[in-house]
Design a binder for these strands. Structure first.
Lengths: 166, 166
DNA sequence: ATGGAAATGTTCAATGTCAAAATTTTTGAG
DNA sequence: CTCAAAAATTTTGACATTGAACATTTCCAT
């Protein structure tokens, strides 16, 4: 059985048999898998009244430590978005009452963001159901497959310098 | 050596040791790899005066067959974007002289899009250098690794129903 | 035949993103 | 001490995307 990328590679083999398009077999699939998985996650969270980026911000804060506090710079790096986009997101999370924003004591350049009680409860409540749903999204792969896939992707990510920003 | 996702999983192990977050080891890495690869592709194409979406449209048409022609619906499906966004993109590509747009003979609902000579030349010229650059992006993986990675992702994609739209 | 449903594109309003400029605060060299 | 450079965030402006509403054309069961 061919997936969408196999079809694409077959088209290239007809159109430009002189070019080695094999890297597309990896990069095209990473890209498509990412978009399809993202769609699945979005669908699940939407049923619970959250945008994917909202859950992402909440869980990033939740797992950051007991005080669930980070500065804007670290948050924008963790979410891989621009500083301007992060300001926009935090404005809306503050408005929804899910996070608090306050100046950092001792360094007035920085702004600290913390989960409110409600934000923390929401993130904690949803976390387990969220991962259970992700597990279903991966149901086409055995445990062995998942380990192998994660290992190969780790190798690729490390070669591109994707170490933790912390 | 830990990548960014290992760090994330370690944080969850501290914060919520009761939850099985292992699916994140796969989904998180697919997502991060996709964004990093996309960034690398964007950088390369930018050096040649093209946006990533422009190259994507051009090559989609190029590999579609000898006449390099598709209807709007198929193009929007291939690019995974909304019909409205595609109209916008084609407006700009027509303006740049890279594609032609004309009503389909025999079915006046449809609009056909074709590469111009200039668009075809640009896509053909850039294709080889583009795939060579993608090859460099994957240089952290051996040929065996790449095959294994592509195979696992195909399995995942097929389980999510990602067969070719044609 | 024919009238309603489906298919195909385009337009439009709302929203989100990014890049760059502006603002505020800190740091450090002289 | 002081002023210039650096750091962290916010503001601003341009632009792309989505989803919904709309217009046109085709299909099909009556």
């Amino acid at each position: 059985m061919d997936d969408a990328v196999d079809t694409m590679l077959g088209q290239w083999a007809c159109t430009r048999p002189d070019v080695d398009v094999s890297p597309l077999g990896v990069i095209g699939r990473v890209s498509r898998a990412s978009r399809l998985l993202e769609r699945g996650v979005k669908e699940f969270l939407g049923e619970h009244g959250l945008e994917a980026w909202e859950f992402d911000m909440l869980t990033t804060l939740l797992r950051s430590g007991d005080d669930a506090t980070m500065c804007m710079k670290d948050l924008s790096a963790a979410a891989m978005i621009s500083p301007g986009a992060l300001t926009n997101r935090m404005d809306r999370l503050v408005e929804r009452g899910l996070v608090d924003r306050r100046p950092a004591p001792g360094n007035r350049r920085m702004t600290l963001v913390t989960l409110t009680d409600e934000g923390r409860r929401l993130a904690n409540d949803l976390l387990e159901r969220h991962t259970a749903h992700e597990d279903r999204l991966l149901s086409g792969l055995s445990a062995t497959d998942r380990d192998a896939l994660a290992g190969l992707l780790r190798k690729l990510l490390l070669s591109m310098g994707d170490t933790a920003p912390l």
